[in-house]
Amino acid sequence: MNDSFADLHTHTTASDGTQPPADNVRLAAEAGLAAVAITDHDTVSGVAEAVAAGAKYGVQVVAGVEISTVAGGQDIHVLGYGLNIEDEMFLSRLEELRETRERRNELILAKLAELGMPLTMTEVKAETATLKRGDDTIGRPHIAAAMQRRGYVATVSEAFDRFLAKGAAAYASVPRIAPETAIAWIREAGGAPVLAHPGLYDDDELVERLAGQGLAGIEAFHADHSPDEERKYAELAGRCGLLVTAGSDFHGFRDGVPFHAPLGSKRVSAAIIQQLMERRGRDSQ
């Protein structure tokens, strides 16, 4: 496995991706990957389907999650790998996070209505026709798709740029847990926590502080990082004794184009997976 590669950050229809979990595994196989992680937002509901597909395509599937947190008014995402996806406490905590996301969605719809673009939650949920599980996550991409269907915007990208991105007209935020809490939850569920795409936070002091809070690694190689940022965070990981991971942050296809990046476009040696498993939290022992 030392000569093979893994993409450790991908999303599916279980959250805000456009492809079913099995499709991500198929795409990983087509990209020549040995392994792929399913890291949906605040849910692990797509993992089982992906694991079954992994057996079919000969691809190792890493059970993962991406937890949404806030620090200093900034969204901070923490990835978890090798979790016990049947841990009842962890599943309950993820459900609480999804309920928080639902409150945020309702605030966004209220703002859109004030802007003359009314949408109902029923319309938003109609954009999730591929969802099959009750613990899938509904988020801004589904709202954006409903806006496009209504003709309020021409594309999903326009919906984000003009209305849904941070600082845009219909953006809304609600209280979220701190990243330290997410790190602790992941470890308590037997997983290895990794800080996602640190270059997006514009807060290296926070990154360095979190590096000492139980992290197993830093996602230095990411589709939204510049080469300089990739080098910087790989070096930071080395100084802190943390593993270096990589992920495309693939969210499927929007308007026929891969979003954020093609699956497998950011990859790391699959040997890192075993190293992550060796740094998991207490429930893995």
Rank of each mutant, 00 (worst) to 15 (best):
G139Q: 06
D161C: 10
L119C: 04
E106I: 10
G134K: 11
A170T: 07
I177Y: 05
T100W: 00
M147R: 03
K166F: 07
R101W: 09
R149A: 09
G116Q: 12
P141I: 11
A159W: 05
L94K: 00
A144Q: 01
E158D: 15
A144V: 05
L112F: 09
K132F: 09
D161H: 15
A170Y: 06
I108Q: 05
V124H: 03
A145N: 07
A170V: 07
E123M: 08
K166E: 14
G151F: 14
T128K: 08
G116D: 12
R140I: 06
K125A: 13
A110R: 06
P175A: 13
A129G: 11
A159S: 12
L112W: 06
D136W: 06
R149L: 08
N105K: 02
E114C: 03
A146M: 07
R140P: 00
R176Q: 08
G134F: 14
V156H: 04
S173I: 01
E95I: 03
G139P: 01
E95L: 12
R149K: 11
T137D: 04
R104I: 09
L109Y: 07
A168D: 05
K132G: 01
T100R: 08
E123I: 10
L119V: 12
V153T: 11
A144M: 03
H142P: 00
H142Y: 06
K166G: 05
L109H: 06
T120Y: 09
S173L: 00
A168C: 10
I177T: 04
V124W: 07
A113F: 12
L97N: 06
R162P: 03
V124R: 02
P118C: 14
G151N: 11
L107D: 09
K166I: 10
L112T: 05
E102V: 05
L109C: 08
R98T: 03
F160P: 01
V174G: 00
E102M: 13
I177P: 00
G151C: 12
A110H: 09
G134L: 14
A126L: 08
R162K: 15
S173V: 04
T155R: 13
L119G: 08
H142I: 01
R140T: 00
R101K: 13
D161F: 15
I138A: 10
R140W: 05
E95Y: 04
I143N: 02
E96K: 05
K111T: 05
R101S: 01
V174M: 01
A170D: 06
G151W: 15
V124S: 04
M121P: 01
L109V: 07
V174A: 03
E114G: 12
M117T: 09
M121V: 11
R176P: 00
K111W: 11
T155W: 14
I143S: 00
A110E: 15
E106Q: 10
E158R: 14
T155N: 13
L119D: 09
L107A: 11
G151E: 13
G134D: 12
